[in-house]
Amino acid sequence: MSDDRKAIVLDGTDTVATMLEGGEVGHSLAVEGDVELAEEIPFGHKVALRDHERDEAVRKYGEAIGVATEPIRAGEWVHTHNCDSARGRADGANADAAAGGGRS
């Protein structure tokens, strides 16, 4: 349909897609699966492809890129407000998730 927004999923295990054009609430994504945008998401930003629980790893490029800091539902915008780095922290927090991300 014409409301399909272009997005890219970089790996089969990814839990987010990257928007190749900006989208509005209700737009669907031109990727596999049935995801509808729950909010406005700008070009280049990420949309959740499925639900995430708090503290669950967010995956892109087939790797963990951070952890969800609150529950995220499919179709929601994933960014600094709900996803945080597990690395380079003065408080050492999220180190377990980092290890889960495959740090050798």
């Binding site: 990257t18 963990a64 890129i65 951070g66 960014h79 600094t80 780095s85 597990a86």
Partner: peptide, 8 residues
């Protein structure tokens, strides 16, 4: 520009 974390 859409980058959320250092990992990404």
């Amino acid at each position: 520009g859409g980058l959320t974390t250092i990992e990404e």
